[in-house]
């Protein structure tokens, strides 16, 4: 155990909790070198720290810690009904990180996890092993599903590892979803046409209010521009749409701003979807008392909370109509409730 010297620790990841068994993993060593002013705390199992009772998600959000661990079980999980598998016969999401650097008020991770800290499973090589048997068929993997992997790419290099792995796997498609403005690590990679970089955008007012610690709209747009110019497939997601008093102007304006900066012909799809959440996650979110998003009087059906049907229709009709002025129908995707 390395005692923390009395120099100032970094605000982010002031503590690295490291499972003893991954202490010598190259990724652990790399991170420990990068965070050489952080306190290193050796632990037996990540759950000792991540699953402690009586943590405060809200308090921890301002001082997140990083837990480096080995994943014993499955890295791959079947895609859920709340997400879009883009008609690939197999759709999994890979869970190599738990927790997110960012802090969005509407994020279901707050309801899912007892901690605002991040667990990074360093043995990504085992995820590739687990995936190989499926790759005789077209398979889509969302690599950034319960987190934003690109946000901490400079630390983890996991996106690069996925891209390197995907280069030689002809049936493997990747979706890398992000709010990050960090395109730099991908610059040195050759664009792979089976990879989609999916940027989530929100109006700046919504970012300021609900998407704490995330890059601004302008920064995200710059990253998108760099990615399309470098030849990557880019999808833009305006999802989740948060319904507010100013919805009628905020979100249509966002589509205008987007296509003012980005040539519509250079993006593969625009995905639109209003806020929705499973009721157990919403219940957990309410307990935190952090945001009005949790307390909106949603309609609940089949264990899923959504805006009332009239509002949901207004959201989609307004935004689809706006999007159609830039894109043809086939390139606009929407999330809609199953009736």
């Amino acid at each position: 155990m390395k005692p923390l010297s009395p120099t100032s620790p970094p605000k982010l990841y002031s503590h690295l909790y490291v499972e003893k068994r991954v202490l010598n993993h190259p990724q652990t060593r790399f991170i420990m070198e990068k965070f050489d002013r952080s306190a290193i705390v050796l632990i037996d199992h990540y759950k000792e720290v991540f699953n402690r009772p009586n943590q405060s998600f809200a308090a921890q959000s301002d001082s997140k810690k990083l837990i480096l661990a080995h994943k014993d079980g499955k890295f791959l999980h079947e895609g859920s009904q709340y997400s879009d598998g883009f008609e690939h016969p197999q759709f999994f999401y890979a869970s190599s990180i738990m927790g997110c650097l960012y802090d969005c008020d509407y994020c279901y991770l707050q309801g899912l996890y007892p901690s605002a800290n991040t667990v990074l499973f360093v043995n990504l090589e085992d995820a590739f092993e687990q995936l190989l048997p499926y790759l005789d068929k077209d398979t889509l993997i969302a690599t950034s599903y319960d987190t934003d992997t690109l946000a901490i790419e400079s630390l983890t290099r996991q996106t690069l590892l996925w891209l390197e792995f995907a280069e030689n796997q002809k049936n493997l498609h990747l979706e890398i979803r992000t709010k990050s403005a960090n395109f730099k690590p991908l610059k040195k990679m050759k664009p792979n046409q089976r990879v989609i970089l999916a940027w989530t955008l929100s109006p700046q007012k919504i970012i300021d209010r609900y998407e704490h610690a995330t890059p601004s709209l302008a920064q995200r747009l710059r990253a998108i521009k760099e990615a399309v110019e470098a030849g990557w497939n880019v999808r833009v997601c305006i999802d989740p749409v948060i319904y507010t008093d100013a919805f009628e102007t905020l979100y249509p304006d966002l589509i205008d701003i987007l296509f003012h900066h980005i040539d519509p012909s250079t993006i593969t799809h625009l995905t639109l979807g209003s806020f929705r959440m499973s009721t157990p996650h919403l219940r957990a979110l309410k307990k935190l008392h952090r945001s009005d998003v949790a307390f909106y009087p949603y309609e609940v059906s089949d264990d899923m909370a959504t805006y009332p049907e009239t509002i949901e229709s207004t959201i989609l009709e307004t935004l689809v109509a706006k999007a159609r002025t830039y894109l043809n129908e086939e390139r606009i995707r929407t999330w809609q409730r199953q009736s």
Partner: peptide, 18 residues
Amino acid sequence: DRSYYPDILYPHPLRETG
């Protein structure tokens, strides 16, 4: 038989240790 971890969420000038 187990370890406990108080959360240190604030800057401070002290040496930290187990």
